[in-house]
Each structure stands twice: as C-alpha cells, then as structure tokens.
Write a protein that binds this DNA or RNA. Structure first.
Lengths: 208, 208
DNA sequence: ACACAAAACTTAACACTGTTAAGTACATTT
DNA sequence: AAATGTACTTAACAGTGTTAAGTTTTGTGT
C-alpha cells in the first residue's frame, strides 16, 4: 500500500517534470518548437520515455491546456467580491482579455489549436469540461443581470455566446497576429477594452 | 515580346495547377495533410518543382489566403444594394458567419494559422491588405450608421472591433471545434445568428 | 545474499515533414 | 553543330511523432 503510493508518487513526479519542461519550451519558444525530442533533451531522458507517461503528444498538450484553464479560473477569483452583476460581467471580460494578453501561448493552445481537442475526440468524449465550466459561470452572471433588469431582455445562451464570442474574437485575433496588423501596436489592448466597454454599455438598459 | 508572354503564361499555368491541387487537398483533407509532397503527387511533378514557383510553403499558403479573401469579398457583393446601413451591417455579419461555416478550412488559414502571416513578417511587410480592406468596409458601414443616428454614439474603431471581434470569435470557436462541444451540434449556426441579432439590436438606438 | 520478475528506460528504426545543392534532359539561340 | 538557358529531378539533410524490441534498474520472495 505504502509502496504503491510511493511508486505512483514517483511516477507523478516525472510526469510533472515532463509537463514543466513542455510548459517552459512552448511559453518561451512557441508551440511550433515544442517537440517530444526537445522535451526529452531538457529533462535528460530518452524521447520514448515520455510515451510511458503520456499516450501521445495530443494527450500531453491536452494536459497543458488543463493547467491553462486552472490558471484562468484562478484569475476569475476576483469576481465573487463584486456585487453588481453587470460590473461582474465587465470584469470577467477584462480578466479574459488580460489572460489572453499575458499568456498568448496558453491561449492559442486552449482555444485555437486542434491537437488538444483531438485528444477528446479520440477518447469518444464529446463534451469539454473546462470550456463548459467557464461558460456556465458567464451564463450565471448574465442570468443575474437579466433578473435584476440590468441588461435588456434576451436569451441567456445567445447573450453569453455574443459576449464570449466578442472577447474571444479580440484575443484570438491578437494571439494569431491579425490584430496588430490593423491597429497601432500600442493601441491593441486599449482598443480591446474600449470594444468591451462599448458592448457592455450597449447591452445596458438605459436607466432613465 | 510574344514569346515572353507565352512563356510567362506557361509559368502561370503550372502555378495555378499547384494552387488548385493545394486547394483541393486542404479543403478535402485538412490543412495538416497539405504537404509539398502531397501536392507534387497530385500534379505529377517532383516536390522540388514547387519551389521553382513558390519560395516556400508559407508563400504558397499566403496565396491560398488571398484566394480566400477574394471569395469572401465576392460574398459581400450583396451588400451594396441594401439601403439601410444597419441592415447592411447585419447582413455583413451574416455573410461573415456564412463564409466561416461554408469554408472552415479557408477561414482557419485566413485568420488562425500562423504560417500565412509569417510570409508577411519575413518580407518586412507590416500591414495586411486583405484584412484591412474588409475592416475598412465594416468601418464605412458603421460610420453610415452613426451618421444616420441608427446606433448609439461611440468610437467607430471600437465599434468595428467589437462587431468584427464577435463574429470572428463565434466563427473561430466553431472552426477550432470549441463551439460544438458547448452547444448542441444542430443549434450551432442558429446560436451564432441569434448572438449577432442580439448585438445589432443592442447597438440600435431605441426609436421610440 | 541470491534468483527471479517486473518496472523503467533506451536504442534503432519507420514513415513522415520542409527544404536545398547538385545534376540531368530538353528547347532555343548563335 | 555547339553553346546557352530553362525546366525539372535525384538525393540528401535535418527535423518530426511514434513504435517494437532490447537493456538496465529496481523491488520482491526465498
């Protein structure tokens, strides 16, 4: 028993070592430079050893994704203290943008790359826990906004997808290097925020 | 002179043959299966021949992008007949969604993949004509909306990025297979449209 | 302490990828 | 007919993910 846990612990340690090395490479050098052999080199093991801990590269990338979602969820811890649902919605959007700007490699992997989703597909798993969880949080906030009459009436799901779609679209354009070609490089973040501001303000019920 | 044009014509023909083959592969089998060797096999030439017509794979992909933008621009030909700028805005969004749904491989290449943009970067070209052109068209429509007081006052650029961001975000989530994991597969397109409807309605000045 | 079994790890290889240097075959010009 | 230039190919390099088979290390029971 004790031996068993110690054994699994050792296994967990190398697993973690692999993930850390992978993280380091793809954050510092980009996803295209993240190869099995490159990871192996860093942790000073043979490339094939990695396959004893991860079924294939997609599985490894998927777990990096999970780490990313963990970090994103952490970033949203500051939401609970905000009383006003509309403000909470606004802040969630700002958090999202912040995450994308600060962790573009993570973001790309979590939302743009095909590889991590292929892991899900290969296991017959049709739903996507991490994405769903974040979306549910967003929907909850929007429901609160609707309940309190802070935004105009509408279908929760449609509004949620509109809001998420917009922030994702902005971050995605930036991460995929389409944004900076169209807006002055210095203004990118500012433009993203003012677009979000406009959206929230548009959705708001005119109080008067 | 005549010889010269005939010669360049022959060159153009093989160029086009390569692009067509590339198009066929990446539309039917996906971008990851589009390799130089695969193209060469289809056109029955040696792989290296392709390098006589395209500097590298990024240049080839960039030109596929251009074809995509051409097609997208064609799709927007139906805008000019619409008198009401707000309706025109709405339709432009619908066109965008339609394009993304009908040509996911093209869309991925045009907006998500790094490769085509690397061509621009490698040539020191910092701006992005095709994207800019589409964005300018959008801005023009928004300016018309503002001028006629059809939407609430706001900065043209911010509104443009909000609108483009949203439709791009939705299409992008769908193309990258994040959408269908969160919404019933049958409802994807419908959800996208109702999100767009909500946005346009929110932006609209309440007439009464 | 020793033999055996199981776990951990490596070597070598396969089938791919983009890309380039060098060589060949053919058409055109002189 | 010889020389030049164009079009194309062969062979190779350096890299990728991945697997089968072999080796080394570790743990266990006697």
């Amino acid at each position: 028993m004790v031996l068993n846990t110690r054994k699994t612990k050792r296994k967990e340690e190398l697993r973690r070592l692999i993930l850390d090395a992978a993280l380091k490479v793809f954050v510092e050098e980009g996803l295209e430079r993240l190869s099995i052999r490159r990871i192996a080199e860093i942790i000073a093991y043979s490339p094939t050893t990695i396959y004893l801990y991860f079924k294939d590269k997609n599985h490894l990338l998927f777990e990096l994704c999970e780490l990313g979602f963990l970090q994103m969820a952490e970033m949203n811890n500051n939401l609970s203290v905000i009383q006003n649902p509309l403000e909470r919605l606004h802040r969630m959007g700002e958090n999202y943008i912040k995450f994308g700007i600060e962790h573009p490699a993570y973001y790309d992997l979590m939302f743009n790359q095909a590889a991590p989703m292929e892991r899900l597909a290969s296991m017959g798993n049709t739903d996507w826990n991490n994405g769903d969880q974040t979306l549910e949080q967003l929907k909850g906030i929007i429901r609160d906004c609707l309940k309190q009459g802070l935004i105009k009436k509408g279908d929760t799901d449609s509004i949620a997808m509109a809001v998420w779609g917009m922030v994702h679209g902005l971050v995605s354009l930036r991460v995929c290097k389409r944004f900076e070609k169209l807006v002055d490089a210095g203004n990118v973040v500012q433009t993203m925020h003012s677009a979000l501001d406009w959206l929230v303000k548009s959705a708001e019920t005119s109080k008067k």
